[in-house]
């Protein structure tokens, strides 16, 4: 009884300590970055003013000019998704523990994929802009890297989750590694593959909108361009187009998903 009491008290003390630490960290951070609550509150009307006065009304004069960047962005999305899904598929089979040909391959690929994924996407884009210059190439490369990092891991996890009993049965018939892959693993992995790839396409579209900000092409460039010229009415139009495009893509992928799965 006494023991239970001590444990309960210890738990309570621990909880209190964590709370105190958390509060201390918050206060220290606010002080450290000189966060000014008054300035923050005062900024809200400024922000709303910017959003509703400077942005309004949306300037739709150049509507025809935006068709091309929208198509560019969609095409980036398709190309980047297809290429990254093919590369990620191969990597995923080599790094999922039930299909990896050798543990060393698995560990090595896991580290590489982890590295690619943990460098933020905008950092990749900035590096690639320096390498390839401003234009569409760095944008597509950045999206492909984003896709590989994201898909390789999710594919590998899907492959690891499939029913291993059916795989065992196909193995017991004397099937080779490739036969086992194609006849037992891929059919079971198909729903995961389709679902993650479509999700990746949505992410790519959203990401390619951001890419323009670092000069990597697409609809995002129009946001940066109009903002830099203080043509906020046009910015509003572009942002609206972007939102509509993302919603449209989400709708289409949802329909495809319903049809296929």
């Amino acid at each position: 009884m006494k023991r239970a009491d001590t444990i309960a008290r210890q738990k309570k003390a621990k909880r209190l300590l964590s709370l105190l630490l958390f509060v201390a960290a918050t206060i220290f951070s606010i002080w450290f970055i000189e966060f000014d609550i008054a300035e923050f509150m005062g900024g809200i009307p400024l922000f709303l003013n910017f959003l509703f006065v400077d942005f309004m009304p949306p300037n739709v004069n150049d509507l025809a000019k935006y068709v091309r960047p929208v198509l560019d962005t969609l095409a980036f999305g398709v190309v980047a998704t297809v290429i990254s899904s093919v590369i990620a598929l191969v990597i995923a089979f080599l790094m999922a523990h039930n299909t990896a040909p050798h543990p060393a391959v698995r560990v090595a690929l896991r580290s590489v994929v982890s590295l690619v994924r943990n460098v933020p996407f905008l950092v990749w884009a900035s590096i690639l802009v320096v390498l390839f210059g401003v234009g569409t190439m760095p944008g597509i490369f950045a999206l492909i890297l984003l896709g590989i990092g994201f898909l390789a891991r999710l594919y590998a996890e899907s492959i690891e989750e499939i029913d291993k009993h059916a795989v065992e049965a196909v193995e017991a018939t004397g099937a080779t590694y490739l036969q086992k892959l194609k006849q037992a693993i891929i059919p079971q992995f198909m729903p995961g593959y389709i679902s993650w790839t479509l999700f990746m396409f949505e992410i790519t579209i959203r990401a390619s909108a951001i890419l323009g900000l670092v000069g990597a092409g697409g609809i995002g460039s129009q946001i940066k361009l109009t903002m830099d010229l203080f043509q906020y009415g046009k910015t509003a139009t572009v942002v609206t187009i972007m939102i509509l495009m993302i919603l449209g893509v989400e709708y289409v992928t949802q329909r495809i998903r319903e049809r296929l799965l």
């Binding site: 049965a169 018939t173 099937a175 037992a184």
Partner: peptide, 18 residues
């Protein structure tokens, strides 16, 4: 231990893979 997403016939034909 059948491959659920394949047809019955395909599952039987797996016996020939070896």
């Amino acid at each position: 231990n059948l491959v659920n997403r394949l047809s019955v016939l395909e599952n039987v034909l797996h016996g020939r893979l070896g």
